[in-house]
Design a protein around this nucleic acid. Structure first.
Length: 537
DNA sequence: ATTAGGG
DNA sequence: CCCTAAT
């Protein structure tokens, strides 16, 4: 934390002196030339009098620093590993995969003043990938770290006692790297400056690491973790609830990406872009687990991304079986149940926020047979591959309480169930209309005829909603029951006219409850009901 | 499979 | 919304 704030401060302070439009902080790791260019430009930058450096000049001066820097490196045995010398001298392996567009990062780098959107842009410029995180603190921190690790630890900074400090202007590269060499605490076994090591890890310029699927987002890596811990406090493992929640949100925003991932990973053809943006973890089993960078606690950690699918109730008989042998099944039963919950695909649910479902398609699904000694039977359940990987986490992480009821905090204080779908006004109106047409109670009818397209509304839902509407209509319409407007529920208050209509229907149907006898005898229930109601409409 | 009602 | 009993 110290380091971070220090960095930000420095950056801000430093930037005040800098001319706008000037790249600050040696941002680019695009290639050797730019790297050196940045060093050079920074030299100028640190001097208040320096004016905007025009690109041409920069290029013209490119040659100069290289020779001067290289010798100094040799002297400080930094090039023992070879790669470092290469890295700094040219042909840098840096950013082989990642090609951030640092051009965006001109001028304003004082992260504190940036809006979320700007931070996003900066983030993209820094890491070459998008982010959906809206946490300003996190963004700033991440960008800060990114820039630092990138190569910002340039001529303007030296590292001393694990802390960054601004360096005098004309010290030159010698001084900088000299200090590295002199301070053993910041030089690792290979003699690499720790900041550079971090840089390597961070941008996975080392081929082997890339093969291990470490990438920008992967902070679970041990090495990265060490670096990370220095800047951010530890955070607890994400809970199941958190994971699910975030996954759902994310799935809406990046479902395309995820789909892309699923598709590409199967063919082993990841587009460069998606490679940068997505986090793919291929476990030893060869299973693909989608993970994502998370902002939990402000430090990036990798969190399994559970594909959200609208759950449907397990088959009744299945539940019955579970009940028959709740203890015998033990863990297995629970696991199976969870599998059902998370990976059963309803036949309908045609629209909205279900896109993700495609990413956990049957190919990733296999049948799991669970023996039932008592019954001498077997039954199969759907279980997604990869579930096993998450299973332990899913089970354990929910150690705190967890009654299997996933709730989500609302904008206000309260919490609400996970799979809640707020009733829209149009839905309510349709409901009312349906009731008026077919009568309250005929919910399967209404569902079929009016809510055919709303797959997520079951007849029971309609019924429940109607019940609520009734309550509301009799409650609220009179000059605001007792106190005015109950705490403004946050949910849309349902227009009074509709409520009135509801009450009308209710009162009317209370008087003339659908007498099955007559309707059945008459054989034209609908007509009767309809006629009665139209009179009031 | 539907409904009604309680939770 | 979920769950269950009663149809």
């Amino acid at each position: 934390m110290e380091v971070e704030s220090l960095l930000i401060d420095d950056r801000c302070g430093m930037h005040i002196d800098a001319e706008p439009g000037q790249t600050v902080g040696c941002i680019s790791n695009e290639g050797s030339s730019s790297w050196m260019a940045q060093l050079e430009s920074l030299e100028g930058l640190s001097q208040p009098k320096s004016k905007k450096v025009d690109p041409d000049k920069l290029n013209g001066r490119l040659e100069e620093p290289v020779p001067s820097l290289a010798p100094s490196l040799r002297e400080s045995n930094l090039n023992q590993s070879g790669s470092v010398g290469e890295l700094l001298a040219g042909g840098s392996p840096l950013s082989v995969t990642t090609k951030p567009d640092f051009s965006i990062l001109k001028g304003e780098i004082c992260l504190d003043n940036l809006s979320i959107k700007e931070l996003h842009e900066t983030f993209k410029a820094t890491f070459g990938r998008e982010t959906t995180v809206k946490d300003k603190q996190w963004l700033k921190r991440r960008i800060s770290i990114g820039l630092t690790n990138s190569c910002a630890v340039s001529t303007n900074f030296i590292i001393k006692d694990n802390k960054f400090a601004k360096k005098g202007n004309e010290e030159g590269c010698n001084g900088m790297y000299g200090s590295f060499a002199k301070d053993p605490s910041i030089v690792n076994q290979k003699g690499l400056p720790t900041c550079l090591v971090g840089q390597l890890d961070y941008h996975e310029v080392v081929p082997e690491r890339r093969l291990e699927n470490h990438n920008i987002d992967d902070y679970s890596g041990s090495d990265d973790h060490k670096n990370e811990q220095r800047a951010a406090k530890r955070v607890r493992k994400p809970t199941k609830r958190y994971i699910e929640e975030f996954s759902e949100v994310e799935s809406k925003e990046s479902s395309g990406r995820l789909l892309n991932l699923a598709k590409n990973s199967g063919h082993g053809l990841m587009s460069p872009k998606s490679h940068v943006r997505l986090v793919r973890n291929v476990s030893s089993g060869g299973r693909t687990v989608v993970t994502r960078l998370d902002s939990l606690g402000g430090s990036g950690i990798q969190v399994p991304c559970v594909s959200r699918v609208r759950r449907s109730r397990p088959r009744k008989n299945f539940m019955a079986l579970l009940k028959f042998n709740p203890s015998g099944m033990g863990m297995a039963a629970t696991l199976v149940k969870k599998a059902l919950d998370d990976h059963s695909f309803p036949p309908d649910d045609g629209n909205e926020d279900r896109v993700l479902k495609a990413s956990s398609t049957p190919e990733h699904v296999h049948h799991l047979f669970v023996g039932m000694p008592e019954k001498g039977k077997q039954f199969s359940v759907m279980s997604a591959v990869g579930l096993g990987n998450n299973m332990e986490m899913k089970m354990n992480s929910s150690g705190d309480s967890d009654d299997n009821v996933v709730t989500v905090p609302t904008s206000k204080g309260g919490v609400r169930r996970k799979h809640h779908r707020a009733w829209t006004l149009s839905e309510v109106m349709k409901l009312v209309e349906g009731v008026s047409r077919y009568g309250a109670g005929r919910w399967s009818e209404i569902k079929r005829l009016v809510f055919a397209s709303y797959s997520y509304r079951t007849s029971v839902d309609l019924k429940d909603k109607w019940r609520n509407l009734l309550k509301a209509s009799f409650t609220q319409t009179p000059p605001d029951t007792g106190m005015n407007s109950r705490k403004n529920t946050g949910a849309m208050p349902i227009p009074t006219p509709i409520l009135l209509k509801v009450r009308e229907l209710a009162e009317m149907q209370a008087q003339a409850p659908p007498n099955l006898s007559s309707t059945k005898v008459a054989g034209s229930t609908r007509k009767i009901v309809h006629e009665k109601q139209t009179g009031f409409l």
